[in-house]
Design a protein around this nucleic acid. Structure first.
Lengths: 258, 258
DNA sequence: CGCCCAGTTGACCAGCTTCAACGGGTGTGG
DNA sequence: CCACACCCGTTGAAGCTGGTCAACTGGGCG
């Protein structure tokens, strides 16, 4: 994917390949690591950045590989997974648009990063990005904020993994995805809504610390009990979001305020 | 450690209360949020800080409470836990000396923080600390680094919670504690070593997503199999650290390099 | 058409939880 | 001083949740 510059009009037809997008028109401008940058900083980033695209299923990096860039997810979904020698896998992060990949100061990737759907990432070579972080405060500030948010999310996930039942886990996953894409559209999740599942049953299982069979069974059970309705395999209709939250075992406010 | 100023000999008798410690003599000086500060910044922090002590078992803050300070653990251990309405609990953080508590920019605590042992914390009122973060880069830089480390730790914990067996969980916990207090003493964990368990069986269970009975049984099993030896209930002798790592199911290098 | 992949469902089983009893150490009050 | 309670920890027995193994369906595609 991602052919070279101005040529090859055939390519952009099907995929609208954003070989270079102005930061000002970027869909994640207000949420990503660049959110707080002023115009000057943005220009600096503009000169540093380049886009990469990955097809669904492709690896972005493998754990242990050298990784010379950091990046923001622009569109699509990526997963962060850890694998044990015997093959047991656990997803440890779900990267949605505006989420950040890579750790400044570390050049070896700590996790497998995989494109779960077709994916566009806005990349920066590590070194220049680190220099920018050292000289301008806004990038570092925003990155701290985002990292703290991710830490909160990871901790909520720990509660799910350690203490929730399979049924609660499924309901929680649906609730989280619903909330995240409501917040992307600046809405509040409630009432009747549609959740577009970007993951296979196996990926959900990796996320939830379950097997794919259990995921399938519990989705069927939630459907039987009227908590959800399936529209195909990946589209899920939630008739009553509060009911879903009950099933998830969450406090109804759904986590950390502020 | 550091008697109180000049006065109140009665107070310092039983507990050696460090009512004020010079930053230069602080045991966590080189690892805490202040690690990178220069002398000037350190003086500023010196004027901001105050110590608080908590007895084992005491709450530091409850989730949902207003929290007007942030703090570093100086000595002792604190736990971060989340609780569901029906009482299920999951520990989401284990705070050892030099670890940071509280989130700049947020005034409501997101978790229950409890002293697992007698605890001394170096506290800063939130507002002045936030101002300091905004004006001097070193505190914010170090906090970002620490937060990224915590995120890595949380993700390793997710693998444990989601995919490891009870036996592996116990072995992992012992390995983590051994590594952490080896690194405090600037050693490398290996060969024969002693682990001082600062937690009750129930707290371990909360950490590992198990019941206290399962924890007890698996510790007994590891003892039977010669992986560990008990010296009392809380002291554990590990004859061969590599063997323990095998039991933990970890890669032998034990996690993220760099 | 046949193959592969994602998903569903069933039968059986293992690992962990639940419930319960018990032991040892410590603190307290008669 | 002992009796008692309480906490922490250990161990046993039984039950349930979720894992394992396997068969089957339906859709997409060479």
């Amino acid at each position: 994917m991602a052919e070279a510059s101005g040529l090859s009009p055939a390519l952009s037809s099907a995929e609208k390949n954003p070989l270079h997008l102005q930061c000002g028109e970027c869909p994640i401008r207000h949420r990503a690591v660049c959110a707080r940058c002023d115009n000057e900083e943005l220009t600096a980033l503009e000169n540093l950045k380049y886009y990469r695209r990955f097809e669904a299923g492709q690896p972005v990096v493998w754990s242990g590989d050298r990784m010379d860039f950091v990046a923001s997810v622009v569109t699509g979904i990526a997963t962060l997974t850890q694998t044990m020698e015997d093959g047991r896998r656990q997803m440890v992060g779900l990267l949605l648009p505006s989420d950040f990949v890579g750790r400044p100061g570390r050049m070896i990737a700590g996790y497998d990063v995989t494109a779960a759907t077709d994916l566009v990432m806005c990349c920066f070579r590590r070194k220049p990005f680190e220099e920018m972080m050292a000289t301008t405060p806004h990038v570092a500030q925003r990155l701290l904020e985002m990292t703290l948010d991710e830490l909160d999310a990871a901790r909520e996930w720990m509660l799910l993994l350690g203490r929730k039942t399979a049924r609660e886990k499924i309901a929680s996953l649906l609730a989280i995805i619903a909330r995240r894409d409501a917040s992307l559209n600046l809405r509040r999740a409630s009432g009747k809504l549609m959740v577009d599942l970007p993951l296979t049953r196996e990926e959900m299982a990796d996320y939830l610390g379950l097997t794919l069979e259990t995921v399938s069974r519990q989705i069927s059970a939630l459907k039987r009990d009227g908590v959800i309705l399936l529209e195909g395999k990946r589209q899920i209709l939630v008739p009553d979001f509060d009911r879903l939250l009950e099933e998830a075992g969450d406090d109804c406010d759904g986590g950390i305020p502020g």
